[in-house]
Design a protein around this nucleic acid. Structure first.
Length: 124
RNA sequence: GAUACCGGACGGGCGAUCGCUGGCGUUGCCAGAGGAAAGUCCGAGCUGCAUAGAGCGAGGGUGCCCGGCGAAAGCCGGGGAGACGCGUUGUCGAUGCGCGUCGACAGUCCAGAUCGGCGUGGUUCGCCACGAGAGCAACAGAAACCAUUCCGGCGCCCCCGUGCGCCGGCUGAAAAGGGCAAUCCUCCCCGCAGCAAUCUCCGAUCGAACCGUUUGCAGGUUGCUCGCCAAGGUUCGAGGUUGAGAGCAGGCGCUUUGCGCCCAGCCCGCUCGCGGGCUGAGAGAGAUGAUCGUCAGAAACAGAACUCGGCUUACGGUCCGGUAUCUUCA
RNA sequence: CGGGGAGUAGCGCAGCCCGGUUAGCGCGCCGCGUUCGGGACGCGGAGGUCGGAGGUUCAAAUCCUCUCUCCCCGA
């Protein structure tokens, strides 16, 4: 989980990032990023109604939050970032599947520069 | 012992590191989703609106009997009308009996009666009132709901026909005795809406009242004066936002860093109904997660959103009880 | 989270309230005719678990219960 100051809180913030932010996507996730004037990053997570029931939507959001919690110290600051899970993701998803996918998307959007992308992360 | 079905209980435990939400005495400590939290099918609390009482109308209500629990919904136990299946009286049918499964079933008994029984409601416990109607049944069949006479047989009127009476018949769910109230209706019961309810505070904005003094370049109304308007200030009211708080997290009260009483669960003591101790989720883009170790272990359905009591639906695995079948041993 | 509505042929809809004949209409589809050919037109035809399961009834698209999917509204 991410601390409250680092979360996107209002619907207007979400709409601004979703309409004007830069978008990259993979088979399972969509990442949108937009510079802000707060001085640090803020994160928002979304799972649509068609993704599954409440348990499956909460599960997906928690996995996304966990990935962003770990990657947050290594990211460029000053952006609002929205991570959206797509509806075709299998329901037996685990952290080991989610983390490389989102890290690759953040690298492609230019916020994440990992020295050796294939190495096992230290906090495992 | 195995398999299947039915009913009930449990709904992973312990440990390590990182992280989240709330509280507190804040380098930390404590607490932190369910049996269904779900569907929203019922009933209550709570809140706002409406409302004298009563009646009429609309809409809704799974409604046998007895006993128990409950605030109510409803649940538990027993019994009955009735339905279906199996067995049995040689077979088929009818009927009777036995067993099993079910049993959302009010609107009556009696040939009839202003009487009586029974049921419902009211009651001053003496008794009183009410228990009334309508509709539907395709196709087939002679005939389908105040019955009827198509066919055959028998009997009677002297004989035939006609007629009358009795018996039988194909059809159909049902053939004169009823069926349907998960048809209308009658009896009985029910105010409407819901925490995105509702209440409080702050802001934009709007309205009303009052103030608006002296000097000087100082808004508009004719150049000036007065007056009026505008700007500004104060008070009151309206308004109700992507705002804040309450509702809201065991409850209530008080002399409010706390104390007292009460409620529920668990544990302990025991003089056996009392005493003591511990515990009580409360978010607001919405808190329970991640990586591992271990136990035989990769486990289903599934996430609190105002609260509580039920109903229904979903569910891997383990344990307990019952029934049926098979196998082994005695 | 709360409150409502709808599922019927490939598509859009009737029928449901008040149960009973073959579940009907328009567009679409198929075949034939017409035309040099196509369209239009005319004739004929196919296509339906009435979202799913259970119940009431002699009989259910219709009545009752449960369930699935979709849509709308409420700060």
């Amino acid at each position: 989980m991410v601390a409250r100051e680092l979360r996107l809180r209002s619907a207007s913030d979400f709409d601004r990032v979703r309409t004007r932010g830069r978008t990259v996507s993979s088979r399972w996730f969509v990442v949108k990023a937009l510079p802000n004037d707060v001085g640090h990053n803020r994160y928002g997570f979304a799972a649509g109604k068609r993704f599954g029931n409440a348990v499956q939507r909460n599960r997906a959001k928690r996995l996304m939050r966990e990935v962003l919690r770990e990657l947050h110290p290594h990211l460029a600051q000053g952006f609002d970032i929205v991570v959206i899970v797509r509806n075709n993701v299998p329901s037996d998803l685990t952290y080991a599947h989610v983390r490389p996918d989102i890290a690759e998307l953040l690298r492609r959007v230019g916020l994440y520069h990992e020295a050796r992308p294939c190495v096992v992360h230290s906090s495992g």
